[in-house]
Amino acid sequence: MPEDPPYLRIVAELRRRIESGELTPGARVPSVRRVAAEWDVALATATKALAVLSQEGLVRAVPRVGTVVATPAPARRSAPRRDPSVHLTRDLVVRAAIDIADAQGFAALSMRAVAVELGVPTMSLYRHVRGRAELAMLMADTVFGEHRLPAVPPPTWRAQLELSARMQWAAYRQHPWLPRLIPITRPHPTRNLMPYVEWALRAVDGHGQDTTTMLHAHITLFGYVRGTAVDIETEAQAEFDTGLSAEQWMDANEAGFSAVLDSGSFPVFARVSSEEFAFDLDALFEFGLQRLLDGFAVLFR
């Protein structure tokens, strides 16, 4: 009988450690490099083994931590989770939707999922929201309502725009699904997002530019923050799918990058270290924010 491929033997051993309790929920599992060294296999083989464990739901990637043993999902209860004495409201519906999106991603959100979360019939939700599209708008508005701009702004236009951008970034960091719900070309006049528009326009008002330029500056900055934040969810999904952090993914693909760079066709890029290439999104956001504001300084003197 043929022997199992190396990656399956690794999967079997790590599965045994998890199921026996040797590796407990939340404990870090060996990194790609450690797996490769322990079993004397290529990084690609180690990567494949951890990806299989992730697909089985035994491990999960945690940003800035690494791959850890997943906590077993609690058994689904047949009884409603909501206290029947609590009156169903729009706010309860929206909060439940945010909880689902935070835990499972926006793709997992549906009216039925919210109904299950609240322990109510699906049709009862439509007395409070018209459907998933309106629910998404209410979710975004609720989140921005939790990130309110201060009553007294900083003294300069640049400090005001910096503060606004960082508060938006914090909202996106807390809720990675949020950027995709905020359209630029078809904005919604929501009560908690509109203050960000007014704040930006007031920040640059009185600096010699017309309202079109002022509005374009706001949209450019808003679009930069939102566009960079889209990769928060993308990276989280990639970690879930592969079981690898960005650093581990770079390690696993080191041989491929080395082959390309050793060709001599990309001499400048070859000077970039692997640590520099595995950049931090927060650092990238700050770098871009400052360069964008440097450009604005030409307009708003």
Rank of each mutant, 00 (worst) to 15 (best):
H207L: 15
V143S: 00
T213M: 13
E247Q: 02
P153A: 12
A246L: 14
D141Q: 05
A151V: 11
D241W: 09
A259K: 15
H188W: 09
A170R: 15
L261T: 00
A171L: 06
V204W: 03
R132D: 14
L135E: 03
E198P: 00
P154G: 05
T242Y: 13
G227K: 05
S265A: 12
T234L: 09
R191E: 13
A236M: 00
R191K: 14
A136N: 05
Y172K: 04
V260P: 01
R127C: 03
P183H: 10
L193K: 03
T185G: 09
P195K: 12
H128T: 10
P183N: 05
A136K: 02
A246N: 11
R226D: 01
P121K: 07
G145W: 07
S265H: 12
R132C: 07
V152R: 01
D251E: 14
T190M: 10
R191M: 11
G119F: 07
A151Y: 01
L221F: 07
A203P: 12
P155V: 13
R132P: 02
A259I: 04
Q237H: 08
F257Q: 02
G119Q: 09
P187M: 06
V204K: 05
A246H: 11
F222Q: 12
N253Y: 15
Q248A: 15
H188D: 06
E254Q: 09
I184S: 15
M194G: 11
V197F: 14
P150D: 06
A151Q: 12
W169N: 07
E247D: 14
P153Q: 07
G206L: 09
F266H: 13
H128N: 09
W177F: 02
T211E: 15
R173W: 03
L163K: 06
P176M: 00
M194A: 14
R186G: 05
S164W: 12
V260W: 00
Y224F: 11
V143Y: 00
R127K: 15
Q209C: 11
L181W: 00
R173P: 04
D231T: 11
I182P: 00
A246E: 13
R130H: 11
R148M: 08
G243I: 03
R158M: 01
R202V: 07
D241Y: 13
Q209N: 00
E162K: 14
G131S: 12
V129M: 09
E134C: 00
H147Y: 13
W169Y: 11
Q174W: 14
F222K: 08
G208Q: 02
T212N: 11
W199P: 00
M167I: 09
T156G: 03
G243V: 09
H207W: 08
S164K: 08
P179L: 02
R130L: 10
L125H: 10
A259W: 11
M214T: 06
P187L: 10
D205A: 09
D141F: 07
L149G: 04
S263W: 04
Q209D: 04
R191T: 11
T212P: 06
H216A: 09
I219Q: 13
